[in-house]
Design a protein around this nucleic acid. Sequence first.
DNA 1: AAGTCGGGGCC
DNA 2: GGCCCAGACTT
Length: 329
Amino acid sequence: MSKQTQSLVPLPLPDNVTQVHAQLLQWYEAEQRNLPWRTTSDPYAILVSEIMLQQTQVDRVLPKYQQFLAAFPTLADLAKAPTAEVISVWVPLGYNTRAVRLQSIARQVIAEYNGRIPDTIDELLKLKGIGRYTAGAIACFAYHKQVATVDTNIRRVLHRIFLGLEVGSRQTEQPINDAQMLLLAEQVLPEGEAYNWNQALMDLGATICTSNNPECTRCPLQNTCQAYTEMSQYSLFPSGTVFRQLKKVAEKKSSYQSQPFTSTNRYFRGRIIDLLRTLSIGQRMPLAELGPRIKTEYSTDDAAWLQQIVTGLARDGLLDYTEEGVRLP
DNA sequence: AAGTCGGGGCC
DNA sequence: GGCCCAGACTT
């Protein structure tokens, strides 16, 4: 049996799952965060929120979510807008290709789905920019499908509740893979409560069961949580120190950053987009002018370097590059 | 499996 | 300063 096949064998269903359902759903009913994408039934608005929330914290998304929907109130508005405008509104959320892909999704839905965002995971996965998490989130949160989905919060919370500490425990010396975690999420999905359950897991992960500094004393699942039980057994008092120490033991640290961020391609890509969004519509900037504007002590020796970055941005659909210069697409 | 892609907030 | 974040895509 291959390792991959073996790893997909379902784990035994935890015996505390019914109690966990009741505790977490009750906690969510009382303590849930008031988030605007939870009070809309517009699949488009939920799509916008889910793309924005990829690798971006809720507090940073909140204002931009409102601004974006004010600028592009409907899917059709987004589809027909100039891409340059979409990219400009997106700043400074980061991962700017998300803006290009979001508009691409809107245009594809208009052209191929009669303007209705798909409601199944399989169809959603066909749209570039929507992976398994976002597909599940849209199916569940926009259409109330009873599906499991796994993001970084849900992965951490489910692991701690049902499997124990992510690192350092005897039971789970290696973190389980994505497919295994999705299977677990599907096994413990409470009947008919997918929406509240998935939202509740993310709320708990974002506010109490955080990565490095969980507040177990405030947790509604303290008496049923496997990780909390392990910490008690090992006489580890739940604290940020414990989790940071465990992570260090696991040698998970990706080691040294060979260069400062302000000398990375990432940094200069951001600088270029931020500069181009200040130009008037259609205006191009020659590379010879762009270089000194984004890099101090820019010299002609940097021309090849700059062209490489610009080519990469053009390939990602983030700018329009000709002999005359560059501009947003 | 490992790299790439942003940027702001928090410790 | 390092780590974190409602991930997805490419190689």
